[in-house]
Design a protein around this nucleic acid. Structure first.
Lengths: 182, 182
DNA sequence: GTCTATATATTGATAGAC
DNA sequence: GTCTATCAATATATAGAC
């Protein structure tokens, strides 16, 4: 029983990771359950066995992705507020993050999908976002600063990904880095 | 000929407006061509006659929506930079804008769809975005300030729409208003 | 220019075998 | 728990009538 539970949980984690990456890359609404499952090497039946519905899968993806993101923020030891912010922002507002949404933050990739989801899904996201905001506020000192910080970096990534040229992408990221660190 | 051209152009505008509203509300990738056309009281045949493909429709929607947005920014006479920014931001970062994406800005609603579109579509968006940035930079003085301004308000709207509770939505918008005006 | 009808593919979800 | 097979619905796109 213990062994089976562990196996199920592990498979669930694999599915979540692969489906999350596929959703961030292609869009959640735009990607079928078959494709989401195939990304993890299983079929749609496995998705419904684990999550019940496509919406249920999105809820789980949100929790999984946001927790992973928070773990990354925290992993960086804070020598000072300035260096912490500068380092994290350099990682977030980078060309690598523009080019690889599948391994990046959920928010710029899927927030629009979440906005169109039903209330329970938005509640799941809200809980995760508030937790992120709290942890950033602890570092930056003020509550409002954290919201401004989050809006700034998410907005910059959303806009940078929507344009074609490297030059404009770089302009947007550079300006935004200045806004949150300088 | 002149009359027919005028009629065609008018129908095209009607279609663009209705399809744009439907896309902003439900998502572009998530909405079928039939539904996009039905929003304008026509069928999918009309869409293909005017725009050739679903992608062609998105290109036209981007131009139409971004031009309308710029026209609104400009309509407000600038008595001073501060009052202009404060007024426009109050309109943008408002509950009405959260609740009615169909009549709001294209960017928070569709930038993620644009980011996943082919290069020509992203080029169309880039041209429009640069124009918007230029006009805002003229008012704010600095180029970078305009990018920061745009990233801030788009990011705030994206996040505010993705959460459920009015309280958190208000927190996000209030903080963001402070960032760009205060 | 717009309609209806249609073609082919894919959607979210379920049933039953194993 | 995961598979294959399958359901009705919908996807993008085209063809031909008017």
């Amino acid at each position: 029983m213990r062994y089976q539970d562990g196996y199920k949980d592990q498979k669930r984690r694999e599915l979540l990771k692969a489906a999350g990456a596929a959703a961030k890359k292609k869009g959640f609404a735009a990607t079928g359950v078959d494709a989401l499952a195939e990304a993890a090497g299983v079929t749609s039946g496995a998705v419904y066995a684990h999550f019940g519905s496509k919406a249920g899968l999105l809820d789980a993806v949100i929790v999984n992705e946001m927790e992973r993101s928070r773990a990354r923020w925290s992993r960086n030891p804070e020598r000072s507020v300035e260096t912490w912010a500068a380092e994290e922002v350099a990682r977030y507002l980078s060309r690598a993050h523009i080019d690889h949404p599948e391994s990046g933050c959920l928010m710029p990739a899927l927030a629009a999908d979440v906005a169109r989801a039903a209330a329970p899904t938005r509640q799941v996201f809200e809980d995760q976002l508030k937790q992120a905001q709290r942890e950033i506020a602890e570092r930056l000192g003020e509550k409002d600063k954290a919201w401004q910080f989050l809006s700034q970096i998410v907005g910059a990534m959303v806009l940078a990904r929507a344009v074609v040229s490297d030059d404009v992408q770089d302009e947007i990221l550079a300006a935004s880095r200045d806004a949150v660190t300088g």
